[in-house]
Design a protein around this nucleic acid. Structure first.
Lengths: 242, 242
DNA sequence: CACCACACTAAACGATCGTTCAGCGCGCCG
DNA sequence: CGGCGCGCTGAACGATCGTTTAGTGTGGTG
């Protein structure tokens, strides 16, 4: 990896240092002084070049957006799947893109206009990819395409958001290439066969929601949440303890 | 909602204020003075009661863990699914549990021993639930049960982690009960039928991975290992840096 | 009443934050 | 050569941070 090439311009070195530290510690957690030390300059020079810490952040945002969306094509011109393709490429060698991926995670979690645009674009591209897959017959059409696209897109972000937990829970530190590869098959299994072996739960939930379209006081089956990790019994079963 | 009941003890009021502000702005983003103002006391009293800001955080952690795991049962005694069931109940009316859910999100994302234990426990319970489902015949057994449990568990956390984006992308603000309900069917569809209409992609990826178990120069099928969703990959956190 | 424990506060301390300021050195242009 | 722009720095400013200190009032107990 080449975090801080000495031959780069001083301004670029500061920007790269900011990108690395914002990504690792968050915007609030990375001080201008820390950034200056990493870039080998004085804190005053950081402000001199960028005007303020917030403006420096904006420039980092723009750089990452460029890197994700592709420098040469506009946001929506490429193939629908190329955002995912870009991320795939990044996955191939994690280490060299670690700073960018860290920063991307912060953009999505820290909240901000740039992060919102990035997320919305990711959802839009996922939606287009699904529509294309449905048209080609390789994917199933869901009952709520907009929501399905959001769900699929967010599921794709999980390894980014929970990298640390994923690595730790599986005996590695961080998200190694080996871990990424290990995720492939179980993920594809889930997206090919699902988890449930019968449509009983889906049908039960569907019937329950159709029966109580508004806030349901009645059926205890309001499983609303996004996870299937609810108890394996059908929606009618009550959930127990407080 | 009742954020600060006046009749509660002062100590509890401080703790509740800290929980709300830590959840909303993060640990670093919420100052002792802010917490004191919200609790209607002086900043010094916060330290007087809890010793330090970090100790206050620890008490908030413990409170939330208690609330999630259930006050009366030990962490692993209950039914395998009851952690998910608890989250289900919380999501059923998000507004009244807003502070706890926000804090839970921070615990998982901010990194810390309590958050790690929480995550690991969630994965363990998810694993147990899947094993139980497989034994009962209601779920399919995956090729990598440990990884499958991690994936399913993390997918369940998505609505929490990306609440803001989810709401915005779907035209609401935050995670409304209506939105939670709307997620139910598409999620269950995904977990029942999957996304792909044929096992072709899974089989291709399976063959490719079997052919190159170690660092693969990559199946040239552009989608090969990749599916729509896996985008991510994060950086690890090495120890050192200036 | 005397005494003390304790909830509680005002003020301040030292550290660190983002930012400003005055100035230094050096290369370029007249 | 003289001046000037500019990359760059050390020092400082004011704000805010977590925490400490010294102290006040009050209520219970001897």
């Amino acid at each position: 990896m080449a975090p801080a090439p000495v031959d780069a311009s001083t301004r670029d070195r500061i920007r790269d240092a900011a990108l690395a530290l914002f990504g690792r510690h968050g915007y609030a957690g990375a001080s201008v002084r820390d950034i200056a030390v990493r870039a080998g300059v004085s804190p005053a020079l950081v402000i001199h070049h960028f005007g303020s810490k917030e403006a420096l952040r904006a420039e980092c945002d723009a750089l990452i957006v460029d890197e994700i969306m592709g420098r040469k094509e506009s946001l929506l011109d490429g193939e629908p799947g190329d955002l995912a393709a870009t991320m795939q490429r990044w996955l191939a060698d994690v280490d060299s893109h670690r700073a960018s991926l860290d920063y991307l995670t912060r953009m999505i979690t820290d909240g901000g206009a740039a992060g919102e645009r990035l997320f919305d674009d990711l959802v839009a591209r996922t939606r287009a990819m699904i529509d294309q897959g449905v048209a080609a017959g390789t994917m199933r059409a869901g009952s709520d395409p907009a929501m399905t696209a959001v769900i699929i897109a967010t599921h794709g972000l999980v390894p980014l958001l929970l990298e640390h937990h994923l690595g730790r829970a599986l005996g590695e530190q961080g998200l190694s290439p080996a871990l990424v590869r290990r995720m492939t098959l179980p993920t594809l299994e889930l997206y090919t066969h699902g988890l449930y072996s019968s449509p009983a739960i889906l049908e039960a939930a569907s019937a329950a929601l159709a029966g109580s379209p508004e806030t349901s006081r009645g059926p205890r089956s309001d499983k609303g949440a996004g996870d299937p990790n609810q108890d394996p019994d059908p929606p009618a079963a009550p959930a127990s303890d407080p």
